[in-house]
Design a binder for these strands. Structure first.
Lengths: 215, 215
DNA sequence: AAAAAACATGAGCTTATGCTCAGATAATGT
DNA sequence: ACATTATCTGAGCATAAGCTCATGTTTTTT
């Protein structure tokens, strides 16, 4: 029931949506997105109603529906921006990574992972919860991207020996991601802590060392 | 608004709730909980409305509210049972763990972690999403328990050298838990795969080996 | 057998959320 | 100056979810 209703809303919505052309309306769109992010972070998903968003953004409900097909579309747009930002942060620290030996490449990668998770841990957490239950959601894209990066790093380093870089990349991404997601949300002060980076490096390098031994 | 309303509902609810004394009503309670678990797993959180639960359980809405203060209380009860079950599975494989050397203790622990995550990965995932945003929810209890177990294991093994067993235990729990949560939900067939257990062991033992080297 | 207690029912109330629409205001074009 | 297009407004509609309560049924007690 809810899902079919959502789909209907989205369809008729995307058609009705108007692309903002003047500066005023562009500001409105930004205000709506900012307001949504604030409410989600500070008050949680249940507080993010259309009325609350419009009120905090300082616009009317009507304006909200002039540029977004509905609440879901606002959240999707926010999620899109968020993952793009995280992905960009990770990409930045990636260029010369292939040329470094693994003992130096991993610390850089871990640092990049930490930085990308620092973008907005609270919002990240809420957005993950708001995604539909299926796989392949917008928020999944960052994990998939990280896994691809990790696999490429493993593949391009002859000093590591794993027989399935894709699988190992995904595995290590989950391990590192699991630590970062929870740690950053619950103890944000530890984000700056160099201990965290070293621990993550030990985790990855220790694992790779044992893989080498096995082969 | 929502939160204070929830609290109010819960209060007046717990008072109104009747403890089932006859076999018939105990069956009703079970039917409600089973129905809720099924709907949550198969159709997702949005489908778990009071009406849908009552319908699937084959009871009336009235009966539902005779034994539960509301939807939240049903879900809390379900969460409580779920974590208790996971915790029990983990506890079982724990007795003689302290006496084994770390190279044998870790595989057993990993096996126990895998088994406990096999209880009901899908339900686990949904229940996590349904918890309030705060810390210290019912669903958090399993992670905290795992971290305590890990810390105890580290502390009682003289062949590992970590200066903060609590912290390292939490760290490793997040890493292992991160892998298991995602892997088991997306690729349940890999749960039986011995590769998973070996990979987790390598992760933990590799990390500990590097810690030892540092000290 | 009668009374009391436990259990079950479901129509319908309340509330709140997502969303529409007819009309007002501002910017832009001619 | 006028017309057109873009933007904004907010009262109110439709919907659905949580929940109540008066009534009926079954079980237990006396």
């Amino acid at each position: 029931m809810t899902k079919s209703a959502d789909k209907k809303a989205k369809r008729s919505a995307e058609n009705r949506r108007r692309a903002p052309s003047q500066a005023r309306s562009r500001a409105t769109v930004e205000a709506i997105l900012t307001a949504t992010a604030q409410i989600l972070s500070r008050e949680g998903p249940d507080a993010a109603t259309t009325k609350a968003i419009a009120a905090r953004a300082g616009v009317s409900i009507g304006s909200l529906y002039q540029y977004f097909g509905g609440l879901d579309e606002i959240i999707d747009t926010l999620a899109r921006r968020h993952v793009d930002e995280m992905r960009a942060v990770l990409s930045d620290a990636l260029a010369e990574l292939i040329r470094l030996p693994i003992d130096e490449a991993v610390p850089r990668l871990m640092q990049a992972m930490i930085t990308s998770h620092q973008v907005d841990p609270t919002l990240d957490h809420v957005l993950h919860r708001l995604q539909p239950m299926q796989d392949g959601t917008i928020m999944d894209e960052f994990r998939d991207f990280s896994a691809t990066v990790a696999a490429a790093a493993l593949r391009s380093h002859p000093d590591v020996e794993v027989d399935d870089p894709e699988l190992v990349g995904a595995f290590l991404t989950e391990a590192v991601g699991g630590v970062l997601k929870e740690t950053l949300r619950r103890f944000p002060e530890r984000l700056e802590d160099p201990t965290l980076e070293r621990a993550l490096c030990d985790l990855v390098l220790g694992f790779l060392a044992r893989q080498r031994r096995d082969a």
